[in-house]
Amino acid sequence: MSYFKYVAMAYAVFFLVLAWDFIVPRLQIRQLLREARGRVARSKRSNSAPTDEELSR
Rank of each mutant, 00 (worst) to 15 (best):
Q31H: 11
F15E: 04
N47C: 12
T51V: 07
G38Q: 12
Y6F: 04
E35G: 15
A10Q: 05
L16V: 01
A10P: 05
F22Q: 04
R30Q: 11
A36C: 06
V17M: 01
Q31M: 10
P50W: 09
A10H: 03
L32G: 15
E35C: 13
S56K: 08
A49W: 07
I29E: 14
R34M: 12
D21V: 03
F22W: 05
S48E: 08
V40M: 08
D52S: 10
Q31R: 12
F14H: 05
L16E: 04
Y11R: 00
L16R: 02
N47P: 04
S48V: 07
Y6V: 00
Y3K: 14
R34Y: 13
T51I: 02
T51H: 12
Y3P: 12
R26I: 03
A12T: 00
A8N: 06
K44T: 08
E53D: 06
M1D: 14
Y11A: 06
L33N: 13
I29Q: 15
V7S: 05
L16P: 01
Q28E: 15
Y6S: 09
R34K: 15
L33Y: 08
A41R: 10
L16F: 02
V24N: 03
A49V: 10
S2D: 06
A19I: 00
L18V: 01
V7I: 02
S56F: 08
F4Q: 12
S48P: 11
D52E: 11
P50M: 09
R45V: 03
R30D: 11
M9C: 10
P50C: 11
L27V: 03
I23H: 03
Y3A: 15
S46A: 14
R45L: 09
R26M: 04
Q28C: 03
E35T: 07
Q31T: 06
E54T: 05
A10I: 00
R26D: 07
R42F: 06
M1H: 10
T51K: 14
M1S: 15
V17I: 05
V17T: 03
A49I: 02
E54K: 10
F14N: 06
R26V: 00
